[in-house]
């Protein structure tokens, strides 16, 4: 007979705590106001509209740099989360014990290419990342961002990342 599964609330709390620790420790994520929602291991990033995100006040439109930053942040969090998820699920990491000094190292961006499809409207934006390849050292990630309609992307991006190496190699 297999062991009784943990109560759903215990599992949810552990996963949500891990995500909150991962995202909450990054000042720039708070500066832009980016939030992450979780369904199982799937993340959706939200960039809530704020006047300070505007790059073209005449249109008005979101700053192209903000769009790039939103996509890059989504890619980095997705990569870190995918690693953290397996550690937390295997109970090798206790999310309650994580703090700024004991977080898993972040991946480093090697390159990032943003494709601007239409101007970012002055309203909330959403993004999801897909890890196309994740090796021991390198990862390739694709990110899509939309606003009103999931099928009408306003930007997409592809980036390569250097994955943090375990201290013992």
């Amino acid at each position: 007979m297999r062991p009784r599964p943990e109560p759903v609330q215990v599992i949810k709390e552990r996963r949500d705590a891990a995500l909150a620790k991962l995202v909450g420790g990054i000042p720039y994520v708070a500066f832009l106001g980016i939030r992450f929602e979780r369904r199982g291991d799937e993340l959706t990033a939200t960039l809530p509209y704020s006047d300070m995100l505007i790059g073209n006040p005449v249109l008005p439109a979101l700053h192209g740099g903000v769009t790039a930053a939103f996509l890059e942040t989504t890619a980095i969090i997705e990569l870190s989360w995918s690693r953290l998820w397996s550690e937390v699920e295997a109970k090798r990491i206790d999310p309650q014990a994580l703090d700024a000094t004991r977080m898993p190292r972040m991946p480093k961006t090697i390159d990032f290419t943003v494709d601007y499809l239409r101007s970012g409207l002055p309203r909330d934006a959403y993004a999801r990342a897909r890890i196309n390849r994740s090796g021991r050292r390198y990862a390739s990630v694709h990110v899509e961002a939309w606003q009103d309609n999931r099928d009408r992307l306003f930007a997409q991006a592809t980036g390569h990342f250097l994955m943090p190496q375990a201290p013992d190699g």
């Binding site: 420790g25 990054i26 000042p27 720039y28 708070a30 500066f31 832009l32 700053h63 192209g64 740099g65 903000v66 790039a68 930053a69 939103f70 890059e72 942040t73 980095i76 700024a100 000094t101 977080m103 190292r105 972040m106 961006t109 990032f112 943003v114």
Partner: peptide, 18 residues
């Protein structure tokens, strides 16, 4: 406020992109 990695204090790539 623009730091991307609190362990190092390095500015986030997104701010450099902007």
């Amino acid at each position: 406020r623009l730091v991307g990695d609190p362990a190092t204090g390095v500015i986030h790539g997104g701010a450099v992109s902007t």
